[in-house]
Amino acid sequence: MMVKINGRPETLPQKVLTLEELVAGMGLNPERLVIEHNLEIVPREAWPGIRIQGNDNIEIVSFVGGG
């Protein structure tokens, strides 16, 4: 399935069905990540329930140093 993650087209592995599985599959520490799914912010507790569809637009952001 093709989706867009952080502005880049990506092909998801078959077994990745939800946002929760996407984060785990990318090897990311879920703490302090924020996910926007098709322009809607998804709270952490809702990640397991959000099924990813083809052509979804997913932004995954975290905090970094800045002035």
Binding site: N6, G7, M26, G27, L28, L33, V34, E59, I60, V61, S62, F63, V64, G65, G66, G67
Partner: peptide, 8 residues
């Protein structure tokens, strides 16, 4: 602090 797309 700033916010950025994650870099895996």
């Amino acid at each position: 602090v700033a916010l950025r797309r994650v870099d895996p």
